[in-house]
């Protein structure tokens, strides 16, 4: 069985989501499978409609506008496109957090089709316990 990496995407800021997608790429490059649990503000970014406008973490401060502009100019792919591309190379599974989805009345159908399933924390922790590495972003 392939080694696994478990990621918890919590923050919905673009920089942290990108960090997650880049780490997932590194894992896939190393022949590892990736299970991603998406919750809270990150889950909002997976809604089909009414997605909050992506921003950078508050620590970007005054640089925020400039960095966003540079990323646009240099055509940096979105975190979600990076994940989509990974599916051609390896195994990446995205799971929506049932707790936060329930709180907002979101169903699997309300989320991007890349979401494999909406699952509870216990099921995810069960996946994570067999992983070589678990990160919370």
């Amino acid at each position: 069985m392939a080694d696994k990496v478990a990621l918890i995407l919590f923050s919905g800021t673009m920089d942290k989501l990108m960090a997650g997608s880049i780490i997932a790429s590194g894992a896939v490059a190393n022949g590892m499978e990736v299970d991603i649990f998406v919750t809270f503000w990150a889950l909002l970014q997976l809604k089909k409609t009414g997605v909050p406008k992506p921003t950078l973490s508050p620590e970007a401060g005054d640089m925020s506008k400039q960095i966003m502009k540079i990323m646009q100019e240099k055509k940096v792919p979105s975190w979600l496109d990076t994940i989509r591309n990974l599916k051609d190379i390896g195994t990446v599974n995205l799971y929506g957090c049932a707790m936060f989805a329930d709180l907002l009345g979101l169903k699997k159908e309300d989320l991007d089709p890349i979401v494999k399933e909406v699952i509870g924390v216990s099921q995810f922790v069960d996946m994570a316990k067999d992983s070589k590495m678990t990160l919370f972003l």
Partner: peptide, 17 residues
Amino acid sequence: RGSFCPGPLMEMIKAYK
């Protein structure tokens, strides 16, 4: 060219596969 880490590596792995 113009693509950032890990873009080129992932393209290479894709071509390899």
